[in-house]
């Protein structure tokens, strides 16, 4: 009796774990199914080479490039903000700051990542854009600059926390060896500790990039909804995620080509983030083995 119960419980727990696999298959299946139908109507070549994206207009074009550049542009701005600041924070907290300071500040910084993204969107649109317009008069009300900067602030803790963990895991013996030769903390940090923790730091950066690419509400609110093939940070653009939101808010007929565009856009997004996540997972596994 007890054996049967144990057996059933194990199977029950096992099936819970299997749900995660089902989710992945579900995502790939759903995106793939709708995307295949989409690509039977729109050629893949057009999808990747046309520089216009106008599925909701009478003159329909299905070029993903404007959405892709919009996504990459906002993500690039975000990383340009988050990388130097996040990494400096990580190094400062791990190598310079007193223990008690690190203990208080780390959770506070992580609060930055806990703020709902719609709140950041508000901040970008209502506070940052008007502020920047003071310096850049021709900045549009919707633009990738403010959205990117605010997104950068949001992902700072991804880089600072994870890289701090990696730096902290570097054995003190290496630091002592370096100090013992007359190196300053800065030299020790950049010549010894950062190289030793490089894989962990790279993982943190990749995860931050992946997060920026998948971020939706900040860009939907502050970057605009005009798919534009440009790298100009002062004009409205549209990201893949913002487009999906735009269509979802509208009244698009289920089963129509317009409806399927969000799945075609979604699978593009999924593939990009999937690649980034897989790379970071591989690096992380390799790096764990080194320290264990």
């Amino acid at each position: 009796m007890r054996k049967i119960k144990e057996y059933l419980i194990e199977k029950l727990l096992f099936s819970s774990a299997l749900i995660t696999i089902a989710v992945t298959f579900g995502i790939i299946g759903v995106l793939g199914f709708e995307a295949i139908i989409f690509f039977s109507e729109v050629s893949i070549l057009e999808f990747f080479t046309d520089t216009q994206w106008t599925p909701l207009f009478a003159d329909k074009h299905f070029g993903i490039l404007p959405l892709l550049t919009g996504t990459l542009l906002t993500s690039f701005i975000a990383i340009s903000v988050a990388l130097p600041i996040g990494l400096s924070i990580g190094i400062y907290l791990s190598e310079y700051a007193p223990k008690s300071f690190r203990k208080t500040v780390k959770p506070l910084l992580e609060l930055l990542a806990a703020v709902p993204t719609v709140v950041y969107g508000f901040f970008a649109l209502i506070v940052v854009t008007p502020f920047l317009q003071g310096f850049i008069p021709n900045l549009s009300g919707f633009n990738s600059l403010s959205a990117g900067i605010v997104m950068g602030i949001m992902i700072i803790p991804f880089i600072s926390s994870l890289s701090e963990d990696a730096l902290h895991a570097v054995p003190d013996a290496l630091r002592e060896a370096s100090f013992g030769m007359g190196a300053t903390k800065l030299q020790t940090a950049f010549k010894v500790v950062v190289p030793a923790a490089s894989s962990g730091i790279i993982v943190s950066i990749i995860l931050a990039i992946s997060r920026a690419i998948g971020e939706t509400m900040i860009v939907a609110i502050a970057a605009g909804q005009q798919p534009r093939f440009t790298l100009d940070p002062t004009v409205p653009v549209e990201t893949i995620t913002a487009y999906i939101v735009q269509v979802s808010l509208g009244d698009v007929q289920h089963g129509s080509i317009e409806y399927r565009t969000i799945f075609a856009a979604g699978i593009t997004l999924f593939v990009v983030t999937f690649l980034l996540n897989t790379i970071s997972y591989r690096i992380r596994k390799k790096y764990q083995q080194r320290y264990e």
Binding site: V30, T216, G266, T273
Partner: peptide
């Protein structure tokens, strides 16, 4: 299972929306 969960954690939330919409 492990690599899959790690990957799911990194899937953008809007993709879950697409999954929910269809399923």
């Amino acid at each position: 299972l492990e690599i899959n969960i790690s990957n799911l954690a990194g899937v953008p939330s809007i993709i879950y929306g697409l999954l929910g919409l269809e399923v």
